[in-house]
Design a protein around this nucleic acid. Structure first.
Lengths: 192, 192
DNA sequence: CGTATTCTTGATATAGTTCAAATGCCGTGG
DNA sequence: CCACGGCATTTGAACTATATCAAGAATACG
């Protein structure tokens, strides 16, 4: 099933009665605090399972960002999926761990002091998640979401991206297309 | 078994051949990057399982902070522990989820723009984790670790704690003892 | 094509980093 | 028990990164 950009796939607080399998595109996990503060917690990529029934209710909303196609499964499907996966009794753990990795990644990225270091670390993370062709990878995440994810303002995201472009660390042939020109330099920036 | 303060319970990169059960005190999860950058990723509290064998190697080091007593178990023990727990086949998931929650918490805390908001959010989190007597709870985490966890400098931690004390939002009768005087105000500060 | 959204840029104020130094605290060994 | 050294915390001062406000340009969308 395809999803419109911005479409909500699962809703925070609703009972966890469905698991989403992301087939293509990128989705975001969003947390809404009681005061209505919105925070992008993670991004999901093709192959990821979204909304594992770890608790009674979903702990975040999942929203389509760009080019999303997905499948919605009942929890029973998860049991079969796990069984089919080579009889490895660890595969539920694997699925959960995969989700956990996304959240840990955000923590580690946000642990840096400067926005530049955080953004550099995120771009390296993203490059490892996206298929790369001609040195470029899709960059469909709006800067507003990036700002929320990296705990900064959209204006700063824009400025830091420009700085990295000027320094020829990255290039953006199109707005939705990112190329890492100097991986070593990017790694150095990411280290504070 | 008791642990000295600062003692390493498990080491990042070593094979996951032991699970630690924290009986008392507080421990920290620390990640060391290849360049040697150190980052406090999470804190563990009594009852937590540390070093679940999700991957071949531990993904973080665990170090004792204060008053730690712990038990070291072989991975087989985990199977028995899971079996004993009411035959709930979900209990491995529960253990993993508990670990995951700690990392998600850091992400959500770090998602705030100001250090004051991050610290306020963390104190609320901590108050929910620590037993409270006489309105006070143990506050054994050194400010250096807090700074690393909250992605700021120790000096700023010190200054913000002072500010909160002056504003009578919190009180610290002793250095290792924290009291929340105005929970509503603290919640408001945590909301940016 | 017009409208809404996202991105970009500039200017300003402020929070927070950094460096440096002083103070307090704790354990160790004499 | 006290003196010492090391470590954590505190404070000050200067500088810098980044939030915020405001406005304009570009882009997507119906």
């Amino acid at each position: 099933m395809p999803a419109h950009d911005g479409e909500t796939l699962i809703m925070m607080g609703e009972p966890s009665d469905a698991v989403i399998e992301l087939r293509s595109g990128v989705a975001r996990a969003v947390s809404y605090s009681s005061q209505g503060c919105r925070q992008v917690m993670a991004f999901f990529f093709p192959g990821d399972l979204i909304g594992l029934p770890l608790s009674q209710e979903h702990r975040y909303s999942a929203e389509a960002i760009g080019g999303v196609r997905f499948a919605r499964h009942r929890p029973e499907w998860l049991d079969r999926w796990i069984g089919s996966e080579n009889q490895r009794k660890a595969s539920m753990s694997l699925a959960i761990w995969n989700e956990e990795k996304a959240f840990i990644a955000r923590g580690l990225i946000l642990g840096r002091l400067s926005v530049e270091a955080r953004l550099a670390a995120f771009l390296r993370y993203l490059a490892g998640k996206q298929p790369i062709s001609d040195g470029c990878f899709d960059f469909v995440i709006p800067q507003v979401d990036l700002a929320s994810y990296l705990a900064t303002s959209p204006e700063t995201i824009c400025r830091v991206l420009r700085k990295l472009r000027i320094e020829k660390v990255i290039a953006m042939p199109r707005k939705d297309c990112m190329q890492i020109m100097d991986g070593n330099h990017l790694a150095r920036i990411a280290e504070r």
